[in-house]
Amino acid sequence: MTNGKLTLEQLYRQGRKTLAQSPSIGEDAGFEALLLFQKVFHLSREELLLQGNHLPSPAQEQEYAALLEKRLAGEPLQYLLGEWEFFGYPFAVGPGVLIPRPETELLVELVLEHLSGTTAPKVLDLCSGTGCIPITIAMEHPDAVCVGVELSEEALPYFRRNLELNHCDRVTIIPGDVLHLPAHPELTGPFHVVTSNPPYIARKELSQLQKEVLREPQMALDGGDDGLLFYRRLPEIAFSLLAPGGLLAMEIGEDQGDAVAALTRQAGFQQVKVHQDPAGHDRVVTGLFLV
Results as ranks from 00 to 15, higher is better:
V108L: 12
G94F: 00
Q78M: 02
F91V: 03
P76A: 12
L106C: 11
P157I: 10
I133S: 00
I137A: 00
L106G: 05
H114R: 13
W84V: 03
T119E: 15
W84M: 00
S116E: 15
S152N: 10
Q62D: 14
V145F: 15
W84A: 01
G117V: 09
Q62P: 02
V111K: 03
L67T: 01
S152A: 07
V145G: 02
V145N: 13
D125C: 08
L163H: 05
L165M: 14
E83L: 13
I137D: 03
G82W: 07
A144N: 03
C127P: 06
G129H: 12
S128K: 10
P100A: 06
G131F: 00
I99C: 09
V149K: 08
E69K: 15
P121M: 07
E75Y: 13
L115F: 06
D169N: 15
L107G: 02
A120S: 15
N162V: 05
H141Q: 07
Y64I: 04
I135W: 06
T130A: 12
V123T: 02
C132P: 05
T104V: 10
E109L: 08
A138V: 02
L165V: 00
G88R: 12
H114L: 03
E85K: 11
K122R: 15
R160M: 12
T130N: 12
I135L: 14
T136L: 03
C168I: 04
C132I: 11
A138L: 06
E109C: 08
P157T: 07
E85S: 14
N162Y: 03
